[in-house]
Simulated assay, not measured.
Amino acid sequence: MKPSAFEYYKPSTIEEALDLMHQYGSEAKILAGGQSLVPAMNFRLADPSILIDINFLNDLSYINEHRKHGLLIGAMTRHVQVEKSSIVAEKCPLLHETMPYIAHPQIRNRGTIGGSIVHADPAAELPAIMLALDAKLRLRSKDNERWVEIADFFTGMFGTAMTENEILVEVAIPHKPKRYGFAFDEVSRRHGDYAMAGVAVSLRVDRKGRCEQGKIVFFSVGDAPVLANNASKLLEKEQLSDELLENVANVASEQDIEPGSDIHASAKYRRHLAKVLTKKTLKRAFDRAQM
């Protein structure tokens, strides 16, 4: 199939793009990498009458370190740029570890950080990673700018807290703390396919190896990335042990998620994957935090 007819705009500045969004609102869609939007338009799952192409806004493509705000990534930064960035590898190793899992090289060459986050696919890696990292998102409209905590951004299946005339322009990831541990893993039928289940762990420990704060975040097990609140609380003031891994994995897979069944995996199998992945990633994160 082919998309319905639409008007095409190619703004040369962010201000021009914001003016167009203000003018057309819900009629318009932003075209960033296009790796999700264009297929959806071809199948007429998305049917915008206005397409605003921001691929020429080079000011939104960057990776910078900021003394106060941490790692700043422009919304139009391509996945491949993040994947190959030495700054990301040093300052945000969880993100660096995750990038090769995202789709295939051809997709990563075009896909953008902002596009993936805004698309809010519950099976996508980046929304979950950003939740594990406590990221903040800078949104702009014609008359306003605001920061949104990532925990408040995802509202459900492909849903976000953005208003119809806003554009995501920047992602801020806080500085990693001392004695920081992280890990990522997923299970898919083939590398590059959407995961049947995946998990990201981010934690810090004290000098004695006890967890001071930890986050376990799942994807592809609900309508949005899922923070395993109950399981994460069990980590507080605890050292790594087989008993801890078992308890946390049981709570995470049985209490914190409500996976559904589809053609890719049953709910029961997704719970099993969540348990296995939690134990693997949690152990790796603890080990890394104490290196």
Rank of each mutant, 00 (worst) to 15 (best):
H175N: 14
K176T: 12
K178W: 00
K178D: 13
R179F: 04
R179I: 00
R179S: 14
R179P: 01
Y180G: 00
G181N: 07
F182H: 15
F182Y: 15
A183T: 06
F184D: 05
F184E: 07
F184Y: 14
D185I: 02
D185M: 10
D185H: 13
E186Q: 15
E186N: 11
E186C: 11
S188E: 09
S188P: 04
S188A: 15
R189N: 07
H191D: 11
H191S: 12
H191W: 04
H191N: 13
G192C: 09
D193L: 06
Y194F: 15
M196R: 13
A197D: 06
G198W: 05
G198Q: 06
G198P: 05
V199W: 01
V199P: 03
A200C: 12
A200W: 00
V201A: 02
L203R: 11
L203N: 08
L203M: 09
R204V: 00
R204E: 12
R204K: 13
D206F: 07
D206T: 09
R207K: 15
R207F: 07
K208E: 15
R210S: 15
R210T: 06
R210D: 05
C211A: 13
C211P: 03
E212D: 10
E212V: 12
Q213W: 06
Q213V: 07
Q213C: 03
Q213R: 13
G214Y: 00
G214Q: 01
K215N: 01
V217K: 03
F219E: 00
S220E: 04
V221M: 02
V221G: 07
G222E: 02
D223C: 01
P225N: 01
V226Q: 10
L227W: 10
N229A: 11
N230W: 01
N230H: 14
N230D: 11
A231K: 08
K233E: 12
L234P: 07
L234S: 08
L234Q: 14
L235Y: 02
E236T: 14
K237T: 11
E238G: 09
Q239E: 13
Q239H: 06
S241M: 08
S241L: 06
S241E: 08
S241V: 09
D242E: 15
E243H: 12
E243I: 05
L244P: 02
L245E: 12
E246S: 15
E246L: 12
N247G: 04
V248P: 02
A249I: 02
A249D: 01
N250D: 15
V251P: 02
E254D: 14
E254T: 13
Q255H: 12
D256E: 10
D256H: 08
D256V: 07
D256Y: 09
D256T: 07
